[in-house]
Design a protein around this nucleic acid. Structure first.
Lengths: 348, 348
DNA sequence: CTGAAAGCGCTTACAG
DNA sequence: CTGAAAGCGCTTACAG
């Protein structure tokens, strides 16, 4: 199976008694090979378990068969799910995957990504949010001829280069659930203002409330940074207010969990005295008690689709790339942090 | 900065008016280049931002400058920490990193890893537990001439090829802490029997108790699978017993958190009515309430050391590889899940 | 100290 | 349908 010395195309050609060009044709499933030749070559390939050298192919084809996920995301499970999703598609297709984390807040971040991609002749990159939201990055990638697919939270026209999660439906579902339970005093912990995804969720949440005839006054919106700590601080602010909300929707699980911890420290029972909903369905959401009601983004499925789209691009099949499904709808996951509002004296 | 067409060594040679061999010498910092030549070449390199093609170097050197982390680990934060640690060292040294997750329980798992490494001519791999515990894998890697470093939970003689976390000291620290608080009825949720790391922690825990003059009877040891769910089940079993423990040490955070959730469901207050300690310091440990007392493994630091060791091997410098520090000691992290034992009626 | 030749393992472009 | 030649961008081994 694994000989000490790997064969080259020349060895295979010699052993099969044909030219190396014929071996090349067989490797690449090219037409115009006689059945006889094909059989001779194939049997040598099988016997010695020959696989062509990726480095040599890369050099002559001027491409690497390397794909990359470029991201600046502190969420470990998001990153690993994306990795597993992409790998699922890459490996059978003969591509390898290089994870490329970066600090996107640095001024030369884009230069570094471009240098990475052009130096390694990366065939294509999958961009995870928030990196995916940069128009400058995508235009630079076009300049150097590097294929890409963006994971976004909002639909763009460019179906060749993006997959998006349509948060709207999930946010509606969450709001309906809260309103059906009887909540009217609903607060939001939103994500940072420079994040498109956070802005989308904010907008979707506000309009969903409006459709139910509910307001979202300013003192019911706390600005968080998508972190646990910011969830704590936002919840402190929201729950200190005289007329405190009966339910809090946080734009991601991290902040929702921060809010829960704050409430527990204040002695509030969840969900009896405060309802909390998150967004992401991170591993922790199901590994706490009460378990967090949230929405699952299907990150793995999204990156599988992204990898399919990207590989279609790399094969030069733009039509196929455009036809890979573009939209993934997050799913509402009801657990134990939501209940009917308490009719407590404080709220009277 | 990023021209449409990248220069080749021939272009640089032409522009500098020297032979390509001279350019090659400059790129590789070889001696015996006159200052005059060096300056001419270097200025062209700088002006055009030339970087040599990794694919071409790979082909002629018969190596790839690719390193890999091979793992079968469900813990997302462990995997990403390992990745960030390795990347920190790889990038400045001119190596790229390929994450290679696998299902190590599959019968052909080792074959697949070997095929991956030899096909891509991977220069070296970092093996994460439990993959790192396979002697068959390391001997196969030697056969194909692939460098490796193992992350282990126990010291082996082979300082060139391993980094280990010495759990013993941290386990002692945990036991001392529990005993000082006054606990005598201490239970263990141990990890799976086929894991060396789990067996090590079990042995260290038992001997630490013994040193304190305490027993660890069979009904105080529950066999878990390192998962949240198994933590729940083990805790149910331990806490159902008539004479229930006042403290539980779980062999990892996942199981400790399962135990906490179980206790909370049973209405036990933590830490007032039950003390729980984990091991790992996963992100969740500090993002729950009460926050989990545990031990930090310093995964990132370990993989940084592993990458240093591996790169030294790849450079052929075995002495340097042997000299990279081998041991990392986990740190005790005291948080809020430990307290003096309750003097409750049930335990009378 | 410098460079011309040959080669790494593939491919493309062309001839037959 | 098949193959000989030249080339991808580097390196090693050797000559001067």
């Amino acid at each position: 199976m694994d000989r000490a010395e790997k064969l080259s195309i020349n060895d295979v050609a010699r052993l099969a008694g044909v030219s190396k060009k014929t071996v090349s044709r067989v490797i690449n499933n090219e037409p115009n090979v006689s059945p006889k030749m094909l059989k001779k070559v194939q049997s040598v390939i099988d016997e010695y378990n020959y696989t062509p050298s990726p480095q040599a192919r890369a050099l002559s084809l001027r491409r690497s068969f390397l794909l990359s996920i470029v991201h600046d995301n502190p969420n470990a499970s998001y990153v690993t799910e994306a990795m597993y999703g992409a790998l699922e598609i890459c490996r059978p297709a003969g591509y390898e995957l290089i994870m490329h984390p970066c600090d996107f807040s640095k001024p030369n971040a884009i230069d570094r990504i471009i240098r990475f991609a052009s130096h390694l002749k990366i065939d294509g990159v999958i961009l995870l949010p928030p990196v995916s939201e940069s128009v400058e990055l995508t235009s630079r990638l076009k300049e150097i001829g590097c294929n890409f697919v963006r994971l976004l939270s909002t639909k763009s026209e460019d179906e060749v280069h993006m997959i998006y999660h349509n948060d709207g439906a999930a946010v509606n579902r969450i709001v309906s659930h809260l309103v059906e339970l009887g909540h009217r005093e609903i607060a939001l912990i939103r994500g940072p203002e420079n994040s498109q995804a956070a802005n989308q969720r904010f907008a979707a949440f506000r309009s969903a409330l409006k459709n139910k005839g509910l307001e979202l006054p300013k003192n019911r919106v706390a600005l968080g940074g998508n972190t646990f700590q910011s969830g704590i601080e936002c919840a402190e602010w929201l729950l200190m207010s005289k007329h405190r909300p009966t339910a809090i929707f946080a734009s991601n699980d991290e902040m929702a969990i921060g809010a829960i911890v704050t409430a527990q420290k204040m002695g509030l029972k969840i969900p009896a005295e405060l309802t909390v909903v998150g967004f992401d369905d991170s591993p922790q959401a199901s590994r706490m008690w009460p378990a967090l009601t949230t929405a699952n983004l299907h990150v793995r499925e999204m990156t599988e689709l992204a990898a399919q789209k990207l590989i279609a691009q790399c094969s030069g099949d733009i039509d196929a790339a455009a036809q890979v499904r573009v939209e993934v709808e997050p799913t509402f996951v009801q657990r134990q942090t939501t209940d009917v509002p308490a009719t407590s004296a404080e709220n009277a």
